[in-house]
Amino acid sequence: MGVPEEAERLVSGGAEDVERAAEAALRPKRLDEFVGQRVVREQLGLVLEAALARGRAPDHVLLSGPPGLGKTTLAMIIAAELGTSVRVTSGPAIQHAGDLAAVLSSLEENEVLFLDEIHRIARPAEELLYVAMEDFRVDVVVGKGAGANAIGLALPPFTVVGATTRAGLLPAPLRDRFGFTGHLEFYEDEELVRVLERSAGLLGVDLHRAAANEIARRSRGTPRIANRLLRRVRDWAQVRGDGTLDRAAARSALEVYEVDEIGLDRLDRAVLHALCVRFGGGPVGLTTLAVAVGEEPETVETVAEPFLVREGLMGRTPRGRVATTRTWQHLHLRPPPSAPTLFA
């Protein structure tokens, strides 16, 4: 099981399928509907337009960046812009070369193969993917032992769209086979407001500009989180309010869902509180910090830590994690004399 992405913490596990369906309904279907990522959109548009003009499948595309910024959405848009279908799988699902060979051999001409979490694909399958991406063929091994025989199977032209949150884990031979690489950046608040206004229109709700600003400010620069918070504010307004999505409704709803003024949620605050109160501001090891908050180390490192470091609320040193001056200020705590001052 992969570690849940940071936005997954805003809903209960039993509602995941409903939430994913809601997310899919709000996804833009074409490139000109996609908000934000101006540079990647322009570059990708050129790649697709040129491929259509030539009547050929475009180069393979690698999309990297933190979770929730639109990598899956862009993969779907690529297929839509090309007028073709998309085959979806993920790195963790491909543990053997045979798994990948089965997928590749069933692809149709110009089809898009979306490989999510491509950095987690198994090494034997990875080597098979090299050949398939470059030469459009796959070697199928028939038989076992000394009698085994490799049969080369030609593949129709297709386009791999790989998505990764950890581009540094991709081996160079695999990265080199992508003709276009786009890195998605966190969104500015104004871009998130545009995302929210579009989503509110699709949901059929009247979202006040002040409420959109409030939600955007707490969405960690991530459209997926912004859309989820919008749906939670809508729920609050429907059940406890008068149906109006104004700033007061947004603030009240986000207080119920424990999302504070800068987007920290329960896990974030638990990590920071343990770091400051239990460990005097650090330095403290990742495993020790995770045990203190009752989470797996990978969850703290992958889900909470990136945002906390980006916001200047946590520092990473060779000796462990440390609190910063902003951490103490945000928690309204006074640092002890022994607290580290490296990041003060």
Rank of each mutant, 00 (worst) to 15 (best):
A226V: 14
A226H: 14
N227W: 02
N227F: 06
R228V: 12
R228D: 02
L229N: 07
L229H: 08
L230P: 04
R231H: 08
R231A: 12
R232L: 15
R232Y: 10
V233S: 00
V233Y: 00
R234T: 11
D235N: 13
D235K: 06
W236D: 04
W236Q: 05
W236H: 15
A237P: 03
Q238K: 14
Q238N: 11
Q238L: 14
Q238D: 13
V239I: 15
V239W: 12
V239F: 13
R240S: 11
R240M: 11
R240W: 11
D242A: 14
D242N: 15
D242H: 12
D242R: 15
D242Q: 14
G243E: 07
G243N: 09
T244R: 15
T244K: 13
T244H: 10
T244L: 11
L245S: 05
L245N: 01
D246V: 06
D246I: 03
R247K: 14
R247N: 02
R247H: 02
R247F: 01
R247M: 08
A248Q: 13
A248N: 09
A249K: 08
A250V: 03
A253N: 02
A253E: 05
A253Q: 04
L254R: 06
L254D: 09
L254F: 07
E255C: 01
E255R: 12
Y257H: 12
E258R: 13
E258W: 01
E258Y: 00
D260M: 08
D260Q: 04
D260H: 05
E261W: 04
E261D: 14
E261R: 15
I262C: 08
D265L: 08
D265R: 11
L267N: 02
D268H: 13
R269A: 06
A270Q: 15
A270T: 01
V271E: 01
V271F: 00
L272A: 09
L272P: 08
H273N: 09
H273C: 08
L275I: 08
C276R: 08
V277I: 12
V277Y: 06
V277E: 14
V277F: 09
V277M: 11
R278S: 14
F279S: 07
G280N: 12
G280H: 10
G281Y: 07
G281T: 11
G282I: 08
G282Q: 06
G282N: 07
G282K: 07
G282P: 03
P283C: 05
P283E: 07
P283H: 02
P283T: 03
V284W: 03
V284I: 14
L286I: 10
L286S: 11
L286G: 10
L286C: 06
T287E: 10
T287G: 01
T287Y: 00
T287M: 01
A290G: 09
V291M: 09
A292F: 03
V293S: 02
V293L: 00
V293F: 02
G294K: 05
E295K: 15
E296M: 05
P297V: 07
E298N: 03
E298W: 02
E298C: 00
T299F: 04
T299G: 00
T299Q: 00
V300R: 06
V300L: 13
T302C: 01
V303C: 03
E305L: 15
E305T: 12
E305D: 02
P306L: 03
P306E: 03
F307L: 11
F307T: 09
F307K: 05
F307S: 02
V309K: 10
R310H: 07
G312L: 08
G312S: 10
L313K: 09
M314E: 03
M314A: 13
M314G: 00
G315T: 09
